[in-house]
Amino acid sequence: MKLGFLVDLNLCMGCKGCEVACKVENEVPLSSWRLRVKYIDIGTFPDSSRNFTPLRCNHCENAPCERICPVSALHYLENGIVNVDSARCIGCAGCMMACPYGAIYMDPETNTADKCTYCAHRIESGMMPACVVACPVEANIFGDIEDDSSYISRYIMEHQGGVQVRKPEKHTNPKHFYVGGGNQTLNPLAHQRIEGYGLFNNITHLKHVGDPHHGILDRFLAPFAAHKAVDNKSFMDFEQKKADSHDKSHENEGGH
């Protein structure tokens, strides 16, 4: 069995349902993503179109992240999934430097590398990945690509010539396919990122890698000293933050 993923970009309408489902299912912290949907505008108004490209780990057959990981925290499962063992990860970020698709992030809560696992825990229980279930137009197709009768295999056969992978020149043999994609949607060098040209914000780059709340010394002390929990809930605790900023604004200055 070799599990694969296919996204039909002709069907995707950019609702971001898959993105939200992934966040919820895997408790992905704020500022991080396992699956994201990128909006790309092509053409001149009024002859312009908006294209949506869901991006996640490609679960490469020849995965550079697995090769560079010094402790086998990134490893292959028998079904072809490239899985992460967070308990073993040393946080060297080698995998982030190796992944040509930028699909790996440093979890700010655990300070370990993390990424899409095709919801390996759900697969183990016989369920589909959360993003597949959430997609309202069935643009996400998931299944065994070694089984000729599976839906994904038949879909690939039906769309021969139109099935693409990202960066094939890297020889990573991705197990994540796209139908209906073009160079402008799949090649990050073919589209521009203009500062401040976002729909909702102009944040193009994160200012931190991993946990922004604890410094280098804290990384050594973490197992011995409990830190104040910083999780999604604390990020969302607006009322408390507001109160803190009023009462202790002077204490917030000066970093950690």
Partner: peptide, 10 residues
């Protein structure tokens, strides 16, 4: 093409 919405990159 121009990216009009995306997550922040590292």
């Amino acid at each position: 093409a121009v990216v009009t919405m995306d997550a922040a990159l590292p």
